[in-house]
């Protein structure tokens, strides 16, 4: 049994303009100790998925249907007290903007110690010592004295380390990281990612990493799931996804990653932008932006199928490669025309 199982999750937002299906029937699972990425442009429903796992969605968002099972338990059916026990203790979260995620009027130490006290029956002194210890483990220099400093006295990267320390304080089984480096400088980013990788191994924690940046995901994750307009459009082990992307959207995302030594004048981009989810396109949601779109794409929505067999996978194994494109059920006339060129040197780990 997987650690986390999400099945047919549907999340809606009720807005002035109409009902928005921010997440539309996604299913996936994460095993113990596994690192899985959710990738897509902003608005794809990645953050909403993360918040749903901890039932942190607020009005006007609502989980409409589907199931979330954690360690065999039905998360959506938990009582308030059970939910409180799950949050922070078993599933912890790291947010996008560390400066917003920390309360400006309490010291960082207090904010970590508080998380420990919320789940374990410890003395204030023990909580304090453990918080300092955590600050050390996320490599904040001079942890004991920085314990009593306020968030605004930390740089962005250091703030995110504090948030990570807080998330790890009760040794959770799953760490949900929602764009943990997006708000940070590129130079800081690598350090944070490396830290996450080390700590996940050290604490034997599974990670769900959300990012819009395929580059961030490459080094850290075992598997990648690509989301578009509330749906998962492709999932594969990381290496396979990079060297052999199957969905045109994934291909487009990869084509637009800038590289050092690039000889192209201009980066190709995917035309247009994410559709308004109040009024989603018919058929394949990506078809208005897809350079390979055909008549079939406009008429029918493709289902997520095994790219080899073209058969929908109800219970995919972690290493299966699935994509939601008519190409793999042989419904396209012209097919997809692109090539992955591998050059020497550098590359992925």
């Amino acid at each position: 049994m997987a650690l986390l199982e999400v099945e047919d999750l549907v999340v809606q937002f009720y807005t002035e303009d109409g009902t928005v299906r921010a997440v539309d029937g996604i299913s996936y699972e994460i095993d113990r100790g596994e690192t899985v990425a959710l990738v897509g442009e902003s608005g794809a429903g990645k953050s909403v998925t993360c918040l749903s796992l901890l039932r942190l969605l607020e009005r006007p968002g609502e989980i409409v249907s589907g199931e979330i099972r954690f360690d065999g338990r039905d998360v959506l059916g938990l009582s308030d007290e059970e939910l409180r026990d799950l949050r922070g203790n078993e599933i912890a979260m790291v947010f996008q903007d560390p400066s917003a995620a920390l309360n400006p009027v309490y010291t960082v130490g207090e904010q970590i110690a508080e998380a420990i006290r919320a789940h374990e029956d410890v003395t204030d002194e023990t909580a304090r010592r453990r918080a300092i210890d955590l600050l050390e483990r996320v490599e904040i220099p001079d942890a004991a004295s920085r314990y009593s400093e306020y968030p605004h006295e930390f740089s962005g990267g250091m703030q995110q380390r504090v948030v990570i320390a807080m998330a790890l304080s009760c040794e959770p089984d799953l760490l949900v990281c929602d764009e943990p480096t997006t708000a940070l400088d590129v130079t800081i980013e690598a350090g944070i990612l490396e830290l996450l990788e080390d700590l996940a191994a050290e604490f034997d924690t599974a990670i769900q990493l959300v990012s819009h940046d395929l580059g961030v995901v490459a080094g850290l994750c075992d598997r990648v799931q690509v989301m578009y307009a509330g749906e998962i459009v492709e999932r594969a082990p990381t290496e396979e996804l990079y060297y052999d992307p199957k969905h045109p959207y994934t291909v487009g995302l990869m084509a637009s990653i800038p590289r050092i030594g690039d000889d192209r004048d201009e980066l190709p981009t995917i035309p247009g932008s994410m559709p308004d989810l109040v009024d989603v396109p018919t058929g394949c949601r990506f078809h208005p932006r897809c350079p390979y779109a055909e008549e079939a794409c406009r008429l029918r929505a493709p289902s997520l199928v095994d790219v080899e067999t073209g058969v929908p996978a109800d219970e995919p194994a972690p290493n299966d490669h699935l994509a939601a494109c008519h190409e793999y059920t042989d419904d396209l006339v012209d097919g997809l025309d692109y090539e992955v060129v591998v050059e020497d040197g550098g590359g992925l780990e």
Binding site: L56, F95, N103, A118
Partner: peptide
């Protein structure tokens, strides 16, 4: 954002409101 963080930590709603938000 810090309200969400506080909830994600597993604090009681009472603590979130009266300690974090009220201050």
């Amino acid at each position: 954002g810090y309200v969400r963080t506080a909830r994600a930590k597993g604090l009681r709603e009472r603590t979130v409101i009266w300690k974090h938000v009220l201050r």
